[in-house]
Design a binder for these strands. Structure first.
Lengths: 347, 347
DNA sequence: ACGTTTTACTAAAACGTTACAGTTGATCGG
DNA sequence: CCGATCAACTGTAACGTTTTAGTAAAACGT
């Protein structure tokens, strides 16, 4: 156990290796860059041995300075603390790591934050930039700055801005459409919706999907069947909205919530009103958060392709970096209806 | 709108600024490093103007090469996809950003992964390293490698290894103790526990806290009141375990679950057995995940100080970097009992 | 045996900063 | 008015790599 007491840890560099192996630094650099064909087996082994013995680790900053590559992708993520996006981030890391890339992260909730984040991430010489679910509204100024960077940039879950940027989005509209369709197939004719904030793309899209499915089946869209389930209003109000829905005539036999948290509250309100889910009222959520299968009853919900989106985004920037992809791409991933107990299809 | 078509974006450097402003690069460097006292107001402004006009951004890699500072902290995080730790990570980013630091992240689930992560993060010259909830068991080899780095390292939520490392932990034992105490105060005498995996620190600690509270009150610890609620077993088995507990005589009047997800399943099982929470059986969870307030009934649970721990960890490495802290510290943060509906105290 | 190719290297110039040791020319105290 | 201090700079050597252009010696073909 050679535990040295503050050994004044001399940083060992390529120079030290060269010296110890009795070669030039160029040769050492060659082995570092897998150009081992340019030297004797014997020299290679000697260098390798010295590296190992001295526990040499190349300084990637110094390397990056000349190669202009850092093997690092910057991720700007919205402040919103939803587990879903963090999960996506986590998955991005997995994909990036397979390609030996790391993620440098920076949260941003205002446009100012975002600009600042771009500044520091690029100053740190990231090879590409991913924007995860950040502010929907951006000025041209901002976009031009991004264009000027001349660096792979992809937006995930942000309203499509301009065609020259890469985008990965998911199709909430189709997701809710599918959920509504499912309820209709199960015989429901009175379907209510606790919608998200209309100021957000997701809120508007989901309402649209609900409406679209109803119309396709010739069911009338009733204003009073739609109530706000925003995160801008409180859970108490979601509960209140649910109770109001239950008082309507005819009483809705199904409620589509804007997300799983809202759905949990909706189910709770229904149960407190002495009604049963799904027998009296079916409930469908949105997001497929990790707790949804464990609710009582297990929640039928629409799963967002957050993992696939993360993977896609990382692959897009890696492709751009490698020069394989050049055209800007707009990917729209489908959502999946996850049927559990709360809609009555499985019981 | 000066949208240039691939302007062959010449990277502008400190040299360009110097030239354009008619000064030496040293002077420009001085303004970059806030040594504006060493020049005329007029020169300063001229340089600033040129910087602004040319949209200059210092290359932090080049700077880092000479200062040996990157303003980046490496975070190695366990693969386990629990939202809780991701939330902690997210909060760490906030704290780090206040100090103008960024987080370079790398997941690791095996020791090999971890070693690899250390290698690349240090190669990228991070200024400090935080281990978030990674593998409990490490070889001395591994630790020595970390010591050799001569770099601030703090472990969060890892079993204390050696005193010369910094640690931030939370006191699960006291947390469950407190939860159990609360139930006892409410008059419960038959309290069961769905424990976590004993191979993990958290599982063992929580069982210990449960036991400790019982003993303090002279209540007998019954083997059959404790069943595994591991994530190593399936939700179906948690449900099964719950039903078995309900069949015991005397029937437990309260169940403490090893975490909130398990608690949700426990509540579900109880309700499916036509019993009511909390009237027939009280339930307490652990973690205070974001969905817990929305369960039916809202879950009483023990909140882990994941945010505080993240903050603490970041502050510890920043302190070490700044040279303010030198001693190794071992912080143990308290958990908080969050009383909601599922234990019957508020209804 | 001679020119040519190949092999196994090496020297030195980048990359974009900071840091330190100077160097001017002006100001100042006595 | 002279040496000393000071203000406002500048020149250049690092930092640890990669890369390009080269070189000396060995191998090869004829």
């Amino acid at each position: 156990m050679t535990r040295s007491q503050r050994p004044a840890t001399k940083r060992i560099t390529i120079k030290d290796i060269a010296q110890a192996a009795g070669v030039s630094i160029s040769t050492v650099s060659n082995v570092l860059n897998d150009r081992s064909d340019a030297m004797t087996e014997q020299t290679l082994e000697r260098i390798l041995a010295v590296m190992d013995e001295l526990d040499y680790r190349p300084n990637l900053m110094a390397r990056g300075l000349v190669t202009r590559r850092t093997a690092t992708i910057g991720v700007v993520i919205a402040e919103i603390e939803t587990p879903l996006f963090l999960q996506s981030l986590s998955f991005m890391e997995s994909i990036a790591r397979e390609a030996s890339y790391n993620l440098l992260i920076s949260k941003a909730h205002t446009i100012e934050d975002e600009k600042q984040a771009i500044k520091v991430l690029t100053a740190k010489q990231v090879d590409g930039l991913i924007f995860l679910s950040v502010s929907q509204y951006t000025d041209d100024d901002h976009l031009n700055e991004l264009r000027r960077l001349d660096m792979p940039v992809v937006f995930v879950n942000r309203a499509t801005l301009h065609d020259d940027f890469d985008h990965v989005n998911w199709d909430d509209t189709a997701g809710v459409d599918q959920a509504t369709e499912h309820l209709i197939q199960l015989g429901h004719r009175h379907i209510a919706h606790l919608r998200g904030p209309l100021s957000r793309q997701s809120g508007a899209n989901r309402l649209e999907g609900y409406r679209r499915a109803l119309e396709r089946h010739g069911l009338t869209y009733r204003e009073d069947y739609v109530k706000p389930g925003d995160y801008t209003v409180s859970p108490e109000q979601w509960q209140q909205s649910t109770l109001e829905l239950l008082d309507l005539s005819p009483r809705p036999t199904a409620i589509i919530a804007s997300d799983d948290i809202v759905a949990a509250v909706v189910m709770k309100a229904i149960q407190q009103a002495q009604l049963r889910v799904p027998y009296d009222v079916a409930v469908i959520g949105f997001d497929d958060q990790h707790f949804s299968p464990f609710l009582h009853p297990a929640l039928t919900t629409v799963r967002l392709p957050v993992l696939a989106a993360g993977k896609c985004a990382v692959e897009m920037v890696l492709g751009k970096i490698a020069g394989e992809r050049t055209e800007s791409e707009h990917v729209k991933l489908p959502c999946t209806l996850i049927i559990r107990e709360s809609c009555g299809a499985t019981t």
